[in-house]
């Protein structure tokens, strides 16, 4: 494993990550590790360590963290946040850290497949509308219990929902990621915290 290059560290990493100013108290982190002790992902994958991720963001270890595969393992269950003695909202930190990774070309493969459903929500007003066969099945189930075959979502709701995404620039942001991927410019992620650790292989072969 290559050593980090000190000259590539980024003193403004924390400010860049917390772009929405949603985790203003990160510097109060005690490095107590309660987050890690309560994290179900860390329980299975010792290389995933929320305490260490907070540390690296504050230290500015930009190189390591943006290309990290581990940051895509968080399940957003918020158990870290629930037990944090200083109320650090780790899930909102993780959401924003992933934005920065994506914009630097990392981890797109974890996000662009979901966005197929976001695009569909702009025309159907519901998230996770399946394909035609799935839709038929849902209609059958709904009629079977005596409710209308499809949930009532107005044209107005759908149009306004889509317009909000257009007008906030969200659609452009998503399309830009699609383009990076289409051009083959997505950068590979790698396990970043593995040095010297033993892990159960069953859990880590993709």
């Amino acid at each position: 494993m290559p050593r980090e290059n000190m000259t590539e560290w980024d003193n403004e990493l924390y400010q860049k990550v917390d772009r929405y100013n949603l985790v203003p108290n990160l510097e109060q982190c005690l490095q107590c590790g309660k987050c890690t002790g309560n994290c179900p992902v860390a329980a299975m994958h010792p290389s995933y360590n929320p305490r260490q991720i907070v540390h690296d963001i504050l230290a500015g270890d930009s190189d390591r963290i943006l290309q990290s595969e581990e940051i895509w393992r968080c399940m957003w269950c918020a158990n870290c946040y629930r037990v944090c003695p200083v109320d650090i909202h780790y899930p909102l930190l993780m959401m924003q850290l992933r934005y920065l990774a994506l914009e630097n070309g990392y981890g797109l493969k974890y996000v662009t497949p979901i966005n197929k459903y976001a695009y569909r929500a702009f025309t159907g007003g519901l998230t996770f509308i399946p394909g035609q066969r799935g839709v038929d099945k849902i209609k059958g189930l709904r009629e079977g219990i005596g409710v209308e075959p499809w949930p009532k979502v107005s044209e107005k709701a759908i149009a306004e929902y889509g317009a909000i995404f257009e007008q906030t620039g969200a659609v452009d942001w998503m399309k830009a990621l699609d383009e990076v991927q289409a051009k083959g410019e997505e950068k590979p992620v790698k396990l970043s915290f593995m040095g010297g650790r033993l892990i159960d292989e069953r859990y880590d072969t993709e």
Binding site: R98, Y99, N115, G125, A170
Partner: peptide, 15 residues
């Protein structure tokens, strides 16, 4: 009423 839009947000799928 529309979708709450939260799920894909928490996957960092959009801003």
């Amino acid at each position: 009423q529309s979708c709450c839009s939260g799920y894909i947000l928490t996957c960092s799928g959009y801003p």
